[in-house]
Design a protein around this nucleic acid. Structure first.
Lengths: 312, 312
DNA sequence: ATTCTCATGCATATATTTTCCATCGCTACA
DNA sequence: TGTAGCGATGGAAAATATATGCATGAGAAT
């Protein structure tokens, strides 16, 4: 492949008209330039330069090559300039993941904001369960993940990861409209001892949250139905087949004959953004964490302003 | 100014995904690649590469630089091609590849002719399976490849490649001399329903051709033996262990007690030369394509003049 | 715990490039 | 016509750069 330094020498001779002038421009001796071009001739097998009186003249082939060299060198300079401009900016590609409700409730506004403010940032969003996210972010397969834990049973954060608390998600109880407690403004967990429950599949956080919340009131839930999609949960609740515990984050619109009632005391899970500490050098990571923080604050304000969700 | 070799190293890591693979592609040790990039980091003052598990990952800055490098390297290549085109001479080095039977049947006469006519052309011939060739020619690792497909299931040609049809290779069936059909002048596929077959390894085109041809007659072949070398196939046929479908191209001399009988209707695969359209500026490429065309025509004439290979 | 794979750093060998200097060819001018 | 001046080139040595082999260390797979 053509060598850039030789091309540079040839180009300089083309531009400055003599070996000596080219050498001066390149800050080397004429001999160096002469030898570079001689090597280029040997490598390509073509005559490039011929003596012309006291000076030299480029052949047609050399002229062509010099013009190409001009474009190539210009491109290299462009690359340098772009590179400089890049440093410290929010660009590149980010692989982010969140568990399902956060992916629906938190990511879309954050992604929209980032898209708006940083058009050169490419984000790819995945939906994942927490353990897998943890593994993948630690390995660098994902750049940033949104995970959750329960306040009284915090998750172990692997070495080398940083986190930022985004929001405390709140659990409400979904009951059929004809349920005895459906008129309540709030419900205590202990009042739910004899209900039948609708849960997600074991191994999902939604399942775990249900079981964990009830166990914290020493209730071993009787799980009557399992369904992974929340709209299915709510349809089952609407049909009077049981109750469900439903997080607020990413919650779909609720059917008319289902009531969502705040628990007392509040049952919350804390939601975090997690990323490799090293990777935080990337402005893109920092910008995304901040955008998630803003999206979370907006969400919390929205909840605070809905009176029927308040717990006295 | 950015150094081309360092950019090449960085680009290779970007494309091949690891320092080791990049090193292999550049034909140097991983250490060399690692050090080139380290120097680039020192020169630019930016982090370019970070360890990621067992491997590495490029930073955003490095990704940007690698993309620029891609353009720069492409421009250099264009310059080379233009340069050669200007000289109008068939010179330089060409990396060509073909699948095994074409490498034996088509390339040798073409290469001999080229060597004779263009002593300054250096050709390196590789034997490859088609998918890999396709990838490599698109990337510029190979300059010209010979691939094949079946007439009724044409191959997808990537953007930016040109092709020329060389020849339609014909399949014959090899049977032992004492086989009931050995006396036939031609054989219909349907007559081969209950044969046992000798095939190449799965994943080779020879294997695929056997299976594809028989399936086209709705025969699911019972593969009794697998061997990659055709002489071995023929020895197995000679021993009465089964039949085989053998392309004419690159066919070795056949043992006495094996009969090769044309299929009716003809089973053919079409063989193409493929090259990057940009690179066709090089007279060397054009000359090689033409030489392959002549070699193919010769081969077709040879087949046409052997009476025992005709199908009525 | 071990065994692999992969990247990297160091010391060393090798290759390349530059400089210095001598030489040669051409031009200008005496 | 001779000769001084200018400019390019080539060889040898020095400076620089680059690649290799090997050792090390980190992470992953078993």
């Amino acid at each position: 492949m053509l060598d850039l330094n030789r091309l540079k020498a040839l180009h300089a001779v083309h531009v400055y008209g003599s070996v000596g002038a080219a050498a001066e421009a390149l800050m080397v001796t004429p001999s160096a330039v002469s030898q570079q071009i001689a090597k280029l001739e040997r490598e390509t097998g073509a005559r490039l330069i011929e003596r012309n009186g006291r000076g030299v003249r480029l052949t047609d082939a050399a002229g062509l090559l010099a013009e190409h060299a001009e474009r190539i060198l210009a491109l290299v300079e462009t690359a340098e300039a772009d590179f400089e401009a890049l440093r410290g900016e929010v660009v590149g590609r980010l692989n982010v993941a969140a568990f399902p409700t956060a992916a629906r409730g938190l990511m879309p506004p954050a992604l929209a904001e980032l898209r708006e403010r940083h058009p050169d940032l490419w984000m790819q969003l995945y939906e994942r369960e927490p353990e897998r996210m943890l593994r993948e972010v630690a390995r660098g397969e994902l750049d940033l993940v949104v995970v959750q834990d329960w306040l009284n049973r915090p998750m172990a954060i692997p070495e080398g990861l940083s986190r930022k608390t985004l929001i405390d998600d709140i659990a409400d109880v979904a009951v059929p409209l004809d349920h005895p407690l459906a008129g309540n403004k709030e419900i205590q967990l202990s009042a739910l001892r004899d209900e039948r429950w609708i849960a997600s599949s074991p191994g999902t956080i939604c399942h775990d949250w249900l079981v964990f919340t009830l166990r914290s009131a020493e209730i071993e839930p009787e799980i009557a139905y399992m369904a992974d999609e929340y709209p299915t949960h709510l349809a089952l609740v609407a049909a009077g087949l049981g109750c469900s515990i439903v997080p607020r984050l990413g919650r779909d619109p609720v059917p008319d004959n289902v009531r969502l009632i705040p628990l007392r005391p509040r049952q919350t899970r804390r939601i975090y953004a997690l990323w490799r500490t090293d990777a935080a050098r990337r402005p893109a990571i920092r910008a995304t964490v901040e955008a998630l923080g803003r999206a979370s604050a907006l969400q919390e304000n929205a909840w605070a302003s809905e009176p029927e969700l308040q717990v006295s």
